[in-house]
């Protein structure tokens, strides 16, 4: 596991849980830099799935391309590591073909919102029962630190060497507006909250998004002088406010803050369920 995780000194029992979900026979180590937030996200997912007591066979983990998207390769589920930006359509095929499966998509901010932006809004719109875990590190990690659709204005990346002239997306607002029925945010500092959000998202029937703010100290941290993994985590701690607290704060006070917790939830009908009604009706008519 990554440095960041080791420093958390997790109780013995926890690492046993994780070991149980690591893919047997897989050649480790992984591709991630020591201390990368991806490791924390991975362990939170595993703990959430363990607590939900899902059978490994019924979980399909689908990803695109990027550092974060390597995750399914390491975990002992049905793993589909697809093409850049396209995880959601592949996941849609799995879910629609086998609606009893729990389909979890791991995607980066570039993967989900740049090249995969169209798929993202349409998966939300359909409200298909897929959980997307969007690891938002504000940058393209895998290709070496280029700007992404979540790179803040004025921030530095290897393709915004004079500061980013563009505006950035808020993935949670985007998902809610596009029709997702569960939207939550956490950071890799808030591992227990992250775990809870993932549990709720996976349990929720409909399209769910968990945005995880995660450290890419190697590129985003270095280029923006944010220090190492630990200082980035500390910053997440300082800058995060819960949904409840955010309600009592002014927009001015909320500037530069990460609002964490469940941001949106509704119980609108789910796509596979609705289609099944059509199938039942048509087959009944024959």
């Amino acid at each position: 596991m990554t440095t960041a995780e080791k420093t958390k000194a997790a109780p013995r029992q926890r690492s046993d849980v994780i070991l149980n979900y690591l893919r047997p026979k897989k050649k480790f180590p992984n591709v991630w830099c020591a201390g990368c937030g991806n490791g924390i996200v991975m362990s939170a997912i595993v703990r959430a799935i363990d607590k939900l007591a899902l059978s490994k066979d019924e979980v399909a983990m689908v990803s695109g391309i990027g550092c974060s998207s390597r995750m399914p390769i390491y975990l002992d589920f049905n793993a589909l590591h697809t093409t850049h930006g396209r995880a959601l359509p592949f996941a849609t095929g799995i879910k629609f073909a086998q609606p009893h499966m729990k389909v979890i998509v791991i995607t980066g901010d570039g993967d989900a919102l740049a090249i995969g932006g169209n798929h993202f809004i349409h998966a939300c719109r359909r409200n298909i029962d897929i959980t997307a875990i969007l690891v938002n590190n504000y940058i393209y990690g895998m290709t070496g630190g280029q700007g992404s659709p979540t790179t803040p204005t004025a921030a530095f990346s290897t393709t915004t060497p004079y500061g980013n002239a563009e505006k950035h997306f808020d993935p949670c607002k985007l998902a809610e507006a596009a029709g997702a029925s569960y939207v939550a945010r956490a950071t890799v500092y808030h591992a227990p909250q992250l775990e809870k959000a993932i549990m709720q998202a996976v349990d929720h029937r409909g399209f769910s998004l968990v945005e995880v703010i995660s450290n890419c100290h190697t590129y985003f941290g270095r280029l923006n002088r944010l220090g190492d993994a630990v200082s980035m985590l500390k910053e997440y701690k300082e800058k995060s406010v819960t949904v409840a607290r955010a309600k009592r704060m002014s927009p001015e006070e909320l500037k530069d803050k990460h609002v964490i917790g469940t941001l949106y939830e509704d119980d609108k009908t789910e796509f596979c369920d609705e289609y099944q009604k059509i199938v039942d009706a048509q087959m009944g008519e024959k």
């Binding site: 589909l80 959601l88 359509p89 592949f90 996941a91 849609t92 095929g93 799995i94 629609f96 073909a97």
Partner: peptide
Amino acid sequence: GAVVGASV
């Protein structure tokens, strides 16, 4: 993409 997902 969906076709491949269904096929697997």
